[in-house]
């Protein structure tokens, strides 16, 4: 498998707090990589640094053999890294369809003269965008709510819409931050299938999760963070057997 992203000795400090220290991480093309760790282990910070939301205090990020360290978020998004958020971030006041069209921002590029001198529904780029958006909404089971204001959707659909919006930007690397947070067991099983489907359709997926059943069920590899350091990396079975991991989650056995 070809290497898609490589983080070298990545560190991020907030004053004295070391949120990430010397993290080395590779993501291979076409895999699902799980990232786990106790609360405050630096998982979300890792996403924020990888996407350029935070500049790393130290270290380098290579993506598709290019150095993207310190690039602004919209540029990494343009080059194909996108994400969802732990606390869902949708464009609440506009329709579901419009959320999707914003997701296609980097792909639809009508000329400004076209915008001014043609009706919105006569611009070829717009027509294509709407068609694609409806197709993806359909495959995500959201077509029937396409014209509802996104803020009024029920929780589960909001989650799905957020993933759909990230998916439609045709990313090479999709980062999911706790996609099953707040879901019941049956919804979680559905989400597992859903994430696998997405991977099969194209993007490489990195998932942050607390739900062990989900992460062990779908990941090809799992990386474990604790206090900002990577303590293990391997197949789910390897990680489950790792002493340091067990220690991080359950504490040390009394002598």
């Amino acid at each position: 498998m070809a290497e898609l992203l490589r983080a070298e000795k990545l560190s991020r400090h907030f004053g004295g707090v070391k949120a990430l220290t010397n993290v080395n991480l590779t993501v291979n093309e076409g895999e699902i990589l799980g990232v786990i760790g106790p609360n405050g282990a630096g998982k979300s910070t890792l996403f924020n640094v990888l996407t350029g939301f935070y500049k790393p205090s130290d270290g380098k990020i290579h993506y598709k053999n290019r150095d993207i360290t310190g690039r602004p978020v919209f540029e990494t998004a343009k080059s194909g890294i996108t994400r969802t958020f732990q606390n869902i971030r949708l464009f609440d006041q506009v329709s579901v369809l419009q959320n999707m069209l914003v997701g296609m921002h980097t792909q639809l590029r009508p000329k400004f003269t076209e915008i001014l001198f043609k009706k919105p529904d006569a611009i070829p780029e717009e027509i294509r965008g709407r068609k694609d958006a409806e197709e993806v909404l359909d495959s995500f089971g959201l077509l029937d709510v396409a014209h509802i204001t996104a803020g009024n959707l029920p929780y589960g659909k909001k989650r799905r819409l957020e993933i759909a919006r990230a998916f439609i930007s045709k990313p090479s690397l999709l980062l999911l931050d706790e996609p099953s947070a707040g879901m019941n067991p049956s919804e979680t099983v559905e989400m597992m299938k859903f994430i696998k489907d997405i991977r099969d359709k194209g993007p490489t997926v990195v998932v942050i999760e607390h739900n062990m059943k989900l992460i062990m069920g779908i990941s090809d590899r799992v990386a474990v963070l604790n206090f900002g350091e990577k303590i293990a990396d391997g197949t789910p079975a390897e990680v489950q057997a790792n002493h340091e991991v067990i220690e991080a989650y359950l504490g040390k056995e009394e002598e």
Partner: peptide, 21 residues
């Protein structure tokens, strides 16, 4: 248009807008 949608995206959530490119 694409531009107006970008404006509305910035209004609703500028961080998510940035992540949409």
């Amino acid at each position: 248009s694409r531009m107006g949608r970008a404006f509305e995206a910035i209004r609703d959530d500028s961080i998510a807008a940035e992540y949409s490119g």
